[in-house]
Nucleic acid binder design. Structure first.
Length: 301
DNA sequence: AAGATTGTTGCTTA
DNA sequence: TTAAGCAACAATCT
């Protein structure tokens, strides 16, 4: 599932490829993913160009000027299974050439649900002036696209907490957010109003690294445990971005490629297996904050 | 074939 | 008033 590192990777991939390119045409299969009317969506975006691509939490923000030269923003949330796949006019999925049916098939086999052409789960296609295309694919169709103005953007942005890789994510600020909260640590990490961008996979990974049991209440955590969680958050998010994100099932970057962080997962998806760290504990799966949660009973107290 | 999957919202309760 | 917790929702796979 795309969380901060995955969305950051998509953002960076797209930025270099679509910035300032004129959008000629937008077509759709299912418009329910678009939260504006499709007529409005087309009218605003066709003949415009994306001036920048930004990210806050797990949300992508594409800035553009509409035909009246008003600054507008396209918000894209990939939720669980959304993908933005960029493909140039020669059918290069950026980073790899698809030039034969056989090759395409073999790639589709290894990486199901990735398309250099319109596929079963392609819902929206952006066509650019140079013949390149951007595919929005979404198997479960939980994601959304929405055009907003500056006022609404500010409103949306204000709901996010601190970004783990920004300067203001300091030990002091972290302690401030924790203060007076009464929930368990996993729910705290998942809440986008506290820290922006952490999802289920990275929350489990952070708590494993910090050696903290996910159900622990914030107020019972020692200063040292909190500091370990703070440091683990920083280092894990940074490392995951370096590895271009985690692919568990559906996530792909804008080049259609899986992320490289999966091998680094210590608990997610490893229930019933021996803990890689202590080699004693068997990874357990429980429910915390309504989410499947994996932990090592030996390493996490 | 029911249950699991996760990110987010909105409702209820404390 | 605010936060915590929980159900609901989206569509598909096992």
């Amino acid at each position: 599932m795309p969380e901060l590192p995955e969305v950051e990777t998509v953002k960076n991939d797209l930025l270099t490829r679509i910035k300032n390119k004129k959008i000629l045409k937008i077509s759709k299969d299912k418009s329910k993913l678009i939260k504006n009317s499709f007529a409005f969506f087309k009218k605003e975006l066709e003949k415009a160009s994306f001036l920048s691509v930004e990210r806050i939490g797990k949300l992508l923000i594409f800035k553009f000027l509409n035909s009246s030269k008003k600054e507008k923003y396209l918000l894209v949330h990939l939720k669980m299974t959304g993908q933005l796949i960029y493909c140039d006019k020669n059918n290069f999925i950026a980073g790899g050439h698809i030039n034969s049916r056989a090759e395409e098939k073999s790639i589709a086999k290894q990486e199901k649900n990735v398309f250099c052409k319109k596929g079963k789960y392609t819902h929206i296609i952006f066509e650019f002036e140079d013949g390149a295309k951007l595919f929005y694919n979404d198997l479960r169709q939980f994601g959304y696209l929405k055009i907003v103005d500056k006022k609404e953007l500010v409103e949306v942005k204000s709901k996010f907490g601190i970004e783990p890789l920004q300067k203001n994510f300091t030990w002091e600020n972290f302690q401030k957010i924790v203060k007076n909260k009464k929930t368990n640590i996993k729910a705290f990490l998942l809440n986008q109003k506290n820290i922006a961008g952490i999802g289920n996979i990275y929350a489990d990974k952070i708590l494993f690294k910090a050696g903290v049991f996910p159900k622990r209440n914030l107020q019972t955590l020692s200063r040292e445990e909190l500091k370990n969680i703070f440091l683990a958050t920083k280092s894990i998010i940074a490392k995951a971005i370096k590895k271009r994100g985690t692919t568990f099932s559906d996530y792909r970057d804008a080049r259609g490629k899986p992320g490289g962080f999966r091998a680094c997962l210590m608990v997610y998806g490893r229930e019933g297996k021996l803990c890689k760290k202590c080699k004693k504990g068997i990874i357990k799966k429980i429910k915390v904050a309504g989410r499947g949660t994996r932990y090592c009973p030996v390493c996490q107290k």
